[in-house]
Amino acid sequence: MVNSSSTFQVNTTQAPLTLGKTFDVIRWSFVALIIVGFCFFILFIAIMLHIFCITPLLRENARYLLFFYMLVNDTFYLLITFFLLLVVLFLFYLPIPICFLLYAISSILFKVTPYNLAVMALERYMAICYPLHRALLCTTNRANVAYSLTWMLLIVIHGAELVLMFSSATNLYIYAICKHDSLLVNPIQNIIRTFSFTLCFGSVGIVIIFTYVKIMLVAHKVKSQSSTASKAGRTVMLHAFQLLLCMSSLLSTLVDTLLPKRIDYMPITYFFFFTCVPRFLTPIIYGIRDEELRRHIKKSLTKYFH
């Protein structure tokens, strides 16, 4: 009986240790997978940015300029969110103001991409429905202005949340893990965040639907499936697909709420599938589909790998 009891105690002691080692292996495997995927993503972006810098035709086109803004934006978003994920996984404490700053920047970067897609859809709409005015309206300067205004709008929204935090909290200069709950000191913050997300994805969805319907009406009048209008319509639908990919990141919050808390390796799992994979796919799909970009990508790949 004594030997049996001792064996049982040893087994029950070793089981959590073995389970903990398994979780560590899974966690580090996903970290390595994300890092490898991110390296390929960075390589692709480096190629695209090189193409953009050496090709005047692309630099002078508002649509391609917005596309490259999206690439750079998503790169910084993945960097910051991956850092925040590691902070949570390894229980690294940071001052609350720094946590909020990192959260605000990642949230702004997250919302800039949908607005960027809306502006790209509007560019296609102007090019097809008002071709005579395109040269005047769809310029790189206007694209820069639209991108800057997007940042200004989101900075104002998060600035209001920051003011609310400092006015509501008694002590913000403490160390905490950078989680969503750690930054909530006033219920109004949830209202601001809900309004921000609703405004972002609601307005972008309306713009994409509106531009697609208008472009398809022009394509129907032309009655040619190979027309420029039909191609523009498919481009706008691609933007809608990209918007859905962006929205998939919101699923991580839902999954985090529903999954049992004991599954401690799951956060990095759905971070990979809901945040990284969509942003890895979006530029690749867009870059391969666009004839001009595809031609330059093939040229660059042939130059570097032969």
Score class of each variant (00 low, 15 high):
F41I: 00
I26F: 08
K221L: 12
S300P: 02
L33K: 00
S106V: 10
E123W: 07
N190F: 09
I108N: 01
L17S: 07
L164C: 07
L91T: 11
L137W: 13
I174C: 05
L250K: 00
Y77M: 07
I51R: 03
T253V: 14
L102Y: 03
I297E: 03
F166Q: 09
K221A: 14
G205E: 01
A176T: 08
A143W: 05
M70E: 02
S6V: 14
I105Q: 04
V277R: 00
F40S: 07
L293P: 05
P56D: 08
V222R: 01
E292I: 15
M237P: 01
P267D: 11
V218W: 02
T81I: 06
L102T: 04
K303H: 10
M1T: 10
L245R: 01
K21C: 10
F44V: 13
R63K: 10
I177E: 04
I34A: 13
R279T: 03
S29W: 05
N73C: 07
T75P: 11
K299F: 07
A104K: 01
S252L: 09
H180T: 14
P278V: 11
F272H: 04
D74R: 03
A15E: 12
I128Y: 01
L259V: 14
I47K: 03
M48N: 08
F83L: 14
T282R: 03
L281R: 00
